[in-house]
């Protein structure tokens, strides 16, 4: 299993995901700009921002502890791990037995808890406010995400992402009935977990509404850059995860090198489409009041559970 070409391929894939992640965000922002009749800054803007942030000097609050300085790196590391688990181009990955979908949810939770703790570390009102809201969103989004995965693993009898994707891509129909519910729930979780409209607004610094930005308010320079970059990777991972679960056509099978170029093309196409779709969705919807967010996520959670029920209806 652990052959060198496979490992190399795995490394290339995860590096690709990590480096392309800001591009996806740039693309979404560009699409949004077009939809709103603006010119936009171009899809490469996130790279410029990251570069700028890395160059700056870190300004640290006086009573920031070591936890505060560690958190960006840990977040970046765990996002990298998440990116390595998700099958993006091919389904045979040597890293994938290390963590299944439940562990993937665990990775996201791990990085989130660290960031929330770091936000509380400086001891300003904003930090704890952000941490509290983030945990509020996550304690509902996390079970919903897990239930989505359960839908997929009931069909494929596995919680291993590679096995799931392989089973799903061989399915007769593009979408299993219970996966329709899962897809709706997943979309809602994606929006909530990546701090997008309607749950959070990535472009605001208004204390009444911000969630993610409130947590990172004390961060600057390279720390902020790492956090931003990990957020890009997170969005990218979620998007590729959605593609892998609900539209896995064209993914290269194990050991099939010739399918890789096709898989790359398919992936780029699907990512472009998904980005445009997200931009459209965000343009069309308005941000929810904070206390509507639990309702939104509760709906996602219930939909995913409903999906599980639908699955049992079919087999019984």
């Amino acid at each position: 299993m652990n052959t060198w070409p496979d490992t190399l391929f795995q490394l290339i894939q995860s590096v690709l995901v990590v480096t392309l992640a800001p591009l996806l965000l740039g693309w979404i922002n560009q699409c949004r700009a077009w939809l709103q009749n603006r010119r936009g800054a171009g899809p490469l803007q996130p790279y410029r921002e990251l570069h700028k942030l890395f160059h700056k000097e870190v300004v640290l609050a006086h009573h920031a502890s070591a936890l505060f300085r560690m958190a960006p790196y840990i977040r970046f590391g765990s996002m990298w791990l998440a990116a390595a688990i998700v099958p993006v181009l091919a389904t045979d990955l040597p890293f994938s037995p290390a963590a299944d979908v439940i562990a993937l949810v665990g990775v996201f939770a791990f990085s989130r808890v660290f960031l929330a703790l770091a936000a509380m570390d400086v001891g300003t009102a904003f930090g704890s406010l952000g941490a509290r809201r983030e945990m509020l969103v996550s304690f509902l989004a996390e079970p919903a995400l897990l239930m989505v995965f359960f839908n997929a693993s009931l069909i494929s009898h596995s919680t291993q992402l590679t096995t799931i994707v392989e089973t799903l891509s061989h399915h007769t129909l593009m979408l299993h009935p219970s996966m329709a519910f899962a897809a709706a729930a997943f979309l809602m979780v994606l929006l909530a977990e990546n701090a997008r409209i309607p749950v959070d607004n990535p472009a605001t610094h208004l204390e009444l509404t911000m969630i993610h930005e409130a947590m990172t308010l004390e961060y600057s320079a390279r720390h902020l850059a790492l956090i931003e970059w990990s957020s890009h990777i997170k969005l990218m991972t979620y998007t590729t995860l959605g593609i892998a679960l609900f539209a896995p056509w064209g993914i290269a099978q194990a050991g099939d090198w010739r399918a890789v170029p096709l898989a790359v093309a398919a992936l780029l196409f699907k990512l472009g489409l998904a980005g445009a779709g997200l931009a459209l969705l965000e343009t069309l919807s308005a941000k929810l009041r904070l206390f509507r967010a639990p309702e939104f996520l509760g709906t996602a959670f219930l939909l995913a559970v409903l999906g599980l029920l639908t699955y049992f209806l079919r087999i019984s």
């Binding site: 129909l173 979408l175 939909l303 409903l306």
Partner: peptide, 22 residues
Amino acid sequence: FLGDLINLLAALLLLIAFAMLA
């Protein structure tokens, strides 16, 4: 395939019923 398709459509119908409830 057609059976699956009908199931999928029925599931979507239920999904919409839920969406209407919410």
